[in-house]
């Protein structure tokens, strides 16, 4: 009898201590402040957030985790949004920012109010915030290194850049150009802005293509590979080696080419599920765990061997994705 009671009590105590790590945050509220939702990557990002956080709320890990998206993709609008979130008393704010520095004022206010701020993808430079950054420069370098491996003779490259004036675009392009300088066999024969959109890339490439010499490789920033392929086909030119992103149409085109003529390439991208990594980082910080202020996320890499698998796991018309669990997040934190 006594034994049983003791056992019960110790089991309860055990359950309490085991649960403690998680239960600590069960009354916490985490908000997502997002600046833009108008493309497939952002849609997938929001869906991943919704999926992972609703499960976390159901399990009682956090109290709630709503997502808020500004309508106009404006810095002022997002700053006002963050101020509202501060007033509403959220414990943590996860931000995909419209600008690296223009939100710093609002972010500082949040930190001063004792709110944990985690930025990802579009990061903020305010020192008090956590940053889940991508090594975009490395993403550029890797592409050229891959091309150098595949095309030892070198030749002319076409560079498709992203949205002009955006930090990410500058970084990837800088990485590409750095690495091209290291490989004398490559020259960038032309450079256009594809805005990470398939149709914009197609238009820009179709315009510049007639004036270019033979192109052996296309370095991209994701979302633009299929548009480039279409522009080459429309101009009746041989298809060069195009580095792909993670959009379904890019992967599908690659698969079709692979089946038809053994086309081989590489896909480099950022999984939109990085929003869930940011969610777990915020939760861990609220939980009192030690998380470095700056984290780097691994790229989502798809190779010739993993293409079929990735394609099968990607919703038709969607984006290849990886969602993070709490354990995955701890691994990423441990690796940094």
């Amino acid at each position: 009898m006594l034994n049983k009671k003791l056992m019960g009590a110790s089991a309860l105590a055990l359950a309490l201590t085991a649960g403690a790590a998680i239960a600590d945050t069960s009354d916490k509220r985490i908000a997502l402040s997002n600046n833009y939702a108008g493309n497939s990557w952002r849609q997938a990002m929001l869906q991943s957030w919704e999926k992972v956080t609703s499960a976390a709320v159901a399990e009682g890990v956090v109290a709630e985790a709503p997502a808020f998206t500004t309508a106009e993709n404006q810095v002022t609008e997002q700053a006002a949004q963050i101020q509202n979130l501060i007033l509403q008393g959220y414990d943590a704010i996860v931000i995909n920012s419209a600008s690296p520095d223009a939100l710093n004022g609002a972010v500082k206010q949040a930190c001063d109010a004792g709110i944990v701020v985690v930025s990802f993808d579009g990061i903020v430079t305010e020192p008090c915030a956590y940053r889940i950054a991508v090594d975009f420069k490395e993403m550029g370098r890797l592409q050229v290194q891959y091309l150098a491996e595949r095309l030892p003779d070198g030749g002319n490259l076409l560079e498709i850049r992203g949205l002009a004036g955006v930090f990410v675009d500058n970084e990837i392009s800088a990485g590409i150009n750095e690495e091209v300088d290291n490989h004398a066999q490559f020259q960038i024969a032309g450079s256009v802005h594809g805005d990470w959109a398939q149709d914009v890339a197609q238009k820009a490439v179709a315009g510049i293509l007639p004036s270019l010499p033979e192109i052996v490789g296309v370095v991209t920033q994701g979302g633009d590979g299929y548009g480039a392929a279409q522009a080459f086909a429309a101009a009746g030119r041989p298809t060069p080696l195009i580095v792909m992103g993670n959009r379904y149409d890019e992967l599908l085109w690659w698969k079709e080419q692979k089946d038809a003529n053994g086309y081989e390439t590489l896909s480099l991208s950022i999984a939109p599920g990085v929003s869930t990594l940011a969610f777990w980082v915020a939760q861990m910080v609220l939980d009192g765990q030690d998380v470095p202020q700056d984290l780097t996320v691994p790229f989502l890499q798809i190779t010739q061997d993993t293409l079929e698998e990735s394609l099968a796991n990607t919703q038709p018309g969607g984006v290849a994705n990886v969602e993070y669990s709490r354990e995955d997040t701890m691994d990423v934190v441990a690796e940094n």
Binding site: G38, N39, S40, Q43, A197, Q198, D199, Q202, Y226, G227, Q230, D249, G317
Partner: peptide, 8 residues
């Protein structure tokens, strides 16, 4: 352009 997208 091979399909509709939100930002087209």
């Amino acid at each position: 352009s091979g399909g509709a997208s939100l930002n087209m």
